[in-house]
Nucleic acid binder design. Structure first.
Lengths: 186, 186
DNA sequence: CCAAACATACCAACCGGTCTGTTTGTTATT
DNA sequence: AATAACAAACAGACCGGTTGGTATGTTTGG
């Protein structure tokens, strides 16, 4: 793999685990055996440019990942189920909840840096759009589909937060169990 | 107000706005005109002890705040509605979403410091417990009440995250609108 | 008189970022 | 084929500023 992708990949993982400010450049550099010169060659604007590159990469990765899940599963219930199953599995295997979340970066940077906030906003919008389209094909009206997509995104993101504080996957499991009920209520 | 509370209050506000790592001790000290000596007199273990004190204070403040809202409002629908209305109002007036959230602190510290993680966990549990009790008095079974309490907490927390990235209160408003539907679905 | 409640100067460690090289790969010229 | 020329891709020493934290003093209330 080339140096640039290497930087993005390890930085992404570290940012997801510890947040943005908690991870120093030297930590990233050491983790992927790259020197400072190389970093500033590929990212002249330093750490924040690297973060935005990470968010862009994450956006693409998450989007394609969810899209394939939504293609493989016929109903939105099954799709959401297998999506959350994957999150739960990842969390249980490596202990870190890095799946479709970047809340650690959102919450500390969204209020500080506009470019970062925009990158995060784009990511959430993409996720919601995938939900939205699936819901529309299942007969939901445009309005209720976008509302449901928002509710689903919010509850999953919130559940991940709870999982992190509780060191347990139960919140995600509960939400996964309840989402079918939500869909019924419309 | 005494020095200790002054420190806690201003630190809480700053932490909520920018997160933990982004706020330096000197920034806090300057903001409330307190010197380093005073800080380390009241919090010998420094910044992290201050953060935990903030979380404890926040816990109490949020808990009593929500409790009074839940006493004033007969149905849980009305209670949630006025709770979110308050959040929306705060966000629209001062631009910062500091209400019942501390996700900025959770996400960057929960994976790093156990004491902080515990304090955050306690806070979420308290909130859920208030929801839970109200739901039980409205006839929900113990099991579905705790599930609903979790779902509500998660979706509100997630919605706040979305609000922050979108710089809009719409996500919270949408969630507020949909929660009655959730309750019906049980 | 004594301890609690500060104030202030100071510190090593670390931060992100810049600097000046050196290596390496590509292309043009003879 | 050899070489000159050039730029991209690094390497690593270095820098000023800031960080959280400490040590030592001074004030103040009981």
């Amino acid at each position: 793999m080339d140096t640039k992708s290497q930087l993005i990949n390890t930085a992404t993982a570290l940012f997801q685990q510890k947040g943005y400010k908690s991870v120093g450049l030297n930590e990233i550099l050491k983790a992927c055996n790259v020197t400072k010169g190389a970093l500033y060659h590929h990212f002249p604007n330093g750490k924040e440019e690297l973060l935005i590159a990470c968010l862009h990469d994450l956006n693409e990765a998450i989007t394609t990942d969810i899209k394939t899940i939504f293609k493989e599963n016929l109903s939105i219930r099954e799709a959401i189920r297998s999506m959350i199953d994957k999150l739960v599995h990842d969390f249980e295997s490596d202990g870190t909840l890095s799946g479709y979340t970047f809340s650690s970066m959102v919450s500390e940077m969204a209020t500080v840096s506009e470019p970062v906030r925009n990158a995060c906003s784009a990511l959430y919008e993409n996720i919601q759009h995938i939900f939205y389209e699936k819901l529309v094909t299942e007969g939901f009206s445009s309005e209720s589909a976008s509302e449901m997509a928002l509710l689903m995104t919010a509850s999953i993101e919130g559940a991940m937060m709870l999982c992190r504080t509780q060191k347990s996957t139960d919140p995600l499991k509960t939400v996964a169990k309840l989402i079918p009920n939500l869909l019924k209520s419309f």
